[in-house]
Design a protein around this nucleic acid. Structure first.
Lengths: 216, 216, 216, 216
DNA sequence: GATGAATGAGAATTCATTCAT
DNA sequence: GATGAATGAATTCTCATTCAT
């Protein structure tokens, strides 16, 4: 289940008022992809419609045929990312104190890293856009909430953790998201498997009071 | 030792070419404080020089008497913050597996939360500015590096941790910084002490393999 | 062969990155012409982009669609003028000591006066811009050099002149250019033909050691 | 009779309303000299009061104690220069067709080159300021007129010249002034004596119908 | 559907001049 | 007399958005 498979590409406001044919859908996709590229390169604020349009090899006029404005395109990307992330959060199974629990956790983290590698640019630009635009803030808060809620449930279910489940869940999200961010944005050179091992070990022992021998 | 005590207020480029008298230094401080306020409110990008000037109750021209531009003022703030943060990182003592180790960790976190409450606006705006301006990126990467290095040393010194010290250190920073960020920016309502307890517990057990009974 | 015939209208930096259609080229021409008008009226420094835009009956934004800034537009005008001037310098034929030599010289001067009447505004603004902007200085020095070189060759070829050919050539340029400048800028009231006669006579006798009877 | 000897240093408007003591006069002279330096370096427009004040090692406030504004200081310099120039123009004696005439002309030119080397910066900035500010334009037109009138009289007096005396006089001024300008501003490398010889030869033969053998 | 051209509000920056000490 | 500080009008330039073809 590669991220690409589920791309919904809802499209912006103007596009939803019209029927899109094959060509139209293609143009819209080009713009979305270009947006991704540009937001990654320059962040949300510094990204200009002009940049996006150039990368997509279309014109200014065309852009506004599909999206109401820059925020509209961004919202489409963010929504796509948020849905994938939320789905992923829910996919974490029971995390026992034993090796099986560790494995479940590790597998889940592994998948997260994939997702983040794909949607990272959006998530990062999001953090940035967030500050002023309360709309993105709300979207983000909700995603964060959903994400943390699922984890909190798993922590509480484990019945072992002496820590505050909600806070611990948020702390976990913080650690996982931000470490990935550091690695991607600062080009810190960390071995992917080692990173996942470390995260899994800290979370399993620190949050789920795992007792399994450290693997590898 | 409140943060205010050590404020160095280096000042921007134009201010460093002149020697400032009392009044000048006062005005510069007003501008720095106003910058803090505005960056907090609107983030780095959305902050306009005009906003800062209004908050500081000075004129446009005056601003440029002390700082070359918005980035220059921000750099002054960032430098101030970075110095404090780095100093704090270095202040973490040995973290044993016992209660004393836990206490050391908790005390250190407690102090961090204070610092972050003060400099948070800067750190957050920093993350945002970072994307385009590589200068801030470098400053940030360096601070992150310094911070993580100190922690990695403590982890390695503890001799107990089966996790990769450098990665674990980065993960710790990520968790601590980001959880504070969530709390401050999303106005998530978490009790300060509980948050510190939780962070201390996760790190002590997860990273330092602490064995102490959960306090409280 | 009126000056208008050869207008190349190279255009400024931004315009060269796109390909212009008919409308675009027209707008660019409007801006160039407006620039000429405004530089003539107020000189290089006092000319504001706003003035140019008003004369061209376009908007501010449009200006920057075609030129990077005032200097960029000016450079386009200067280049145009420099090319014409250089071509004209090269068109001076052999100048003998007899009446034919005088006639050649006079014809050439006559044409120069036409050219200068057209490009004078640019040349004058150039002198002014020159002081600070070394780029224009270089362009000007080169044009001056080209111009003088051609004349120096003619002087040397004449074989009669006891004066230093290069210095004499520069002196000629100085006299011709500056007298035209005085006449145009100070609105000194001199009869065009008399001016040309006088210049021709001085140069023919003073530089080429002409022996022809004074014409008219 | 070096230029320095006759410096009148009239001073700007504000200075004339007060009595100046020794210190005051010294400060004013510092500002005038600094103005000269800065106008030479950057031209009239680009020269900022700030530059002048820095070179003079005084403050902004002090500047306005002596001059009403930038133009006021410039006017003081220009007046000084204009007086010297006018006096020099008048000093040209009778120019005969023989060697003595040539010598008179040459001596006069020699002195002019000295003067121009000193006041050149002012004259050049003047040309530039002239474009917009009609006050300087008038001053310049008057100087030019005075200068040319004197020469025209000498030309007419010589009784030999078949050229139009007034036009020829203007042409002479143009040539002399501009060649010096080229040499000073473009740092064209011409031997001073050769330049004077050439100018003298062209003018003597071309304007005064001199018959003397070319000297040197 | 698509495109190049045009627009203008908004933000940054400079610098001559005035002011308070 | 002298000075550093403050001011704000004037300009330049950018870029999201609309328009005409």
């Amino acid at each position: 289940m590669a991220p690409e498979a589920t791309r919904t590409a809802t499209g912006g406001a103007p596009a939803q008022e019209r029927e899109l044919r094959a060509q139209g859908r293609k143009t819209m996709r080009k713009l979305l992809d270009a947006g991704m590229t540009v937001f990654e390169r320059r962040g949300y604020h510094a990204a200009r419609v002009d940049d996006i349009v150039k990368v997509a090899r279309t014109s200014h006029g065309t852009f506004y045929l599909y999206f109401a404005n820059k925020a509209d395109l961004f919202r489409a990307l963010v929504t796509e990312a948020a849905e994938e992330m939320a789905a992923h959060a829910a996919s974490l199974g029971e995390v026992g104190a034993d090796d099986a629990g560790y494995d479940e956790l590790r597998k889940w983290l592994d998948r997260f890293v994939d997702l983040y590698r794909h949607y990272g640019p959006v998530v990062r630009a999001w953090t940035e856009a967030d500050v002023e635009d309360s709309e993105f803030g709300r979207l983000g808060a909700q995603l964060l909430g959903d994400f943390a809620l699922t984890l909190a449930t798993r922590i509480r279910d484990s019945g072992r953790s002496p820590v505050h489940p909600q806070i611990a869940a948020l702390a976990m999200v913080a650690m996982i998201e931000r470490l990935n961010y550091y690695v991607l944005s600062r080009s810190i050179d960390i071995d992917r498997d080692e990173m996942i091992d470390t995260l899994a070990a800290i979370v399993h022992v620190g949050v789920f009071r795992g007792t399994a021998r450290r693997p590898r």
